[in-house]
Every structure is written in C-alpha cells, then in structure tokens.
Amino acid sequence: THFTSQQLQELEATFQRNHYPDMSTREEIAVWTNLTEARVRVWFKNRRAKWR
C-alpha cells in the first residue's frame, strides 16, 4: 500500500503519542486518513518493528 504524505503525517503523529493505539483509536485514524482499520493496524505493527 502506498500512503500519501498526509496519511503518513497523521499516522506518524499518532505513533509519537501512542505506539499501541486501541481499536477505537485505529478506527478514528482510518476515518481521518481514508484507510481501512486493517491497513492502519498493519502500519502500526510494521512501524513498531522499525522503531525497535
């Protein structure tokens, strides 16, 4: 999946605040970024792996 810079900005900003967002937070992010909750969940999983 290719993310727009706007989507990445929103995802990264949320990641800085919370590395493990809950389901409702992921659903909110999905609405803001026009992505599915599953895409958001996978992005956070991959981002945490990169962060370690």
Score class of each variant (00 low, 15 high):
T1G: 13
T1P: 12
T1S: 10
T1C: 14
T1L: 12
H2I: 10
H2E: 11
H2Q: 11
H2Y: 12
H2F: 11
H2T: 10
H2R: 14
F3E: 03
F3R: 03
F3N: 03
F3S: 03
F3I: 11
F3K: 03
F3D: 02
T4R: 04
T4E: 04
T4G: 04
S5M: 12
S5R: 14
S5D: 11
S5H: 12
S5E: 12
S5N: 10
Q6F: 14
Q6K: 13
Q6I: 11
Q6S: 10
Q6M: 10
Q6W: 15
Q6C: 11
Q6E: 11
Q6T: 09
Q7S: 04
Q7A: 06
Q7Y: 04
Q7L: 06
Q7W: 05
Q7M: 08
Q7I: 08
Q7H: 04
Q7C: 05
L8A: 06
L8R: 07
L8E: 10
L8T: 07
L8C: 08
L8Y: 07
Q9K: 12
Q9I: 12
Q9C: 14
Q9V: 11
Q9D: 09
Q9S: 11
E10F: 15
E10I: 15
E10N: 09
E10M: 15
E10P: 01
E10W: 15
E10V: 15
L11F: 02
L11I: 02
L11W: 01
L11G: 01
L11A: 01
L11N: 01
E12A: 01
E12Q: 02
E12V: 03
E12P: 00
E12S: 02
E12N: 05
E12Y: 04
A13H: 09
A13D: 08
A13T: 09
A13Y: 10
A13E: 10
A13N: 08
A13G: 06
A13Q: 09
T14K: 09
T14Y: 15
T14R: 15
T14H: 15
T14G: 10
T14C: 15
T14D: 04
T14V: 15
F15A: 03
F15Y: 06
F15S: 00
F15C: 04
F15L: 01
Q16T: 08
Q16R: 11
Q16W: 11
Q16Y: 08
Q16G: 07
Q16D: 06
R17A: 09
R17D: 07
R17Y: 09
R17V: 10
N18I: 09
N18W: 08
N18L: 06
N18E: 06
N18Q: 06
N18A: 04
N18Y: 06
N18D: 07
N18S: 05
H19V: 05
H19K: 14
H19G: 04
H19A: 07
H19L: 04
H19F: 06
H19S: 05
H19I: 05
Y20P: 01
Y20L: 03
Y20E: 03
Y20R: 05
Y20K: 04
Y20F: 12
Y20A: 04
P21T: 02
P21S: 02
P21L: 03
P21F: 03
P21H: 02
P21Y: 02
D22M: 04
D22A: 08
D22T: 11
D22Q: 05
D22K: 06
D22L: 04
D22W: 03
M23S: 07
M23R: 15
M23I: 10
M23P: 06
S24E: 11
S24Q: 14
S24H: 12
S24R: 14
S24C: 11
S24V: 12
S24L: 12
S24A: 14
S24M: 10
S24Y: 09
S24N: 12
T25A: 11
T25S: 08
T25C: 11
T25N: 05
T25I: 08
T25V: 08
R26V: 09
R26I: 14
R26D: 02
R26Q: 03
R26W: 05
R26M: 10
R26T: 05
E27P: 01
E27C: 12
E27Y: 12
E27R: 14
E28P: 00
E28R: 13
E28G: 07
E28Q: 14
E28H: 09
E28C: 13
I29K: 01
I29L: 12
I29C: 03
I29D: 01
I29G: 01
I29W: 02
I29T: 02
I29Q: 01
A30Y: 03
A30D: 01
A30C: 05
A30V: 02
A30F: 03
A30Q: 02
A30S: 05
A30I: 02
V31T: 11
V31R: 15
V31M: 13
V31A: 14
W32H: 14
W32S: 15
W32V: 15
W32G: 10
W32T: 14
W32C: 14
W32K: 15
W32F: 13
T33E: 02
T33L: 15
T33V: 11
T33P: 02
T33K: 01
T33S: 06
T33Y: 09
T33M: 14
N34M: 08
N34E: 07
N34G: 15
N34V: 05
N34D: 09
N34A: 07
N34R: 07
N34T: 05
L35G: 03
L35F: 03
L35E: 03
L35C: 07
L35A: 07
T36Y: 03
T36A: 05
T36V: 04
T36E: 06
T36H: 04
T36D: 08
T36K: 04
T36S: 09
T36G: 04
E37A: 06
E37W: 04
E37F: 04
E37P: 07
E37L: 05
E37D: 03
E37G: 03
A38E: 13
A38T: 09
A38W: 12
A38D: 10
R39Y: 09
R39S: 13
R39A: 15
R39C: 13
R39Q: 15
R39G: 08
R39I: 15
R39N: 10
V40T: 00
V40H: 00
V40I: 09
V40Y: 00
V40G: 00
R41I: 05
R41N: 08
R41M: 06
R41F: 06
V42H: 12
V42E: 15
V42Y: 11
V42F: 11
V42C: 14
V42I: 14
W43R: 01
W43G: 00
W43A: 00
W43P: 00
W43S: 01
W43K: 01
W43V: 00
F44P: 00
F44M: 04
K45Y: 10
K45R: 12
K45P: 00
K45Q: 11
K45I: 14
N46D: 09
N46T: 10
N46M: 14
N46C: 14
N46S: 08
N46A: 12
N46F: 12
R47F: 03
R47E: 03
R47S: 02
R47A: 05
R47K: 05
R47Q: 04
R48A: 04
R48S: 02
R48W: 04
R48T: 03
A49F: 08
A49I: 10
A49S: 07
A49C: 07
A49W: 07
A49G: 06
K50M: 11
K50C: 09
K50S: 08
W51G: 06
W51M: 10
W51C: 11
W51N: 07
W51S: 06
W51A: 09
W51R: 05
R52D: 07
R52A: 09
R52T: 08
R52W: 10
R52L: 14
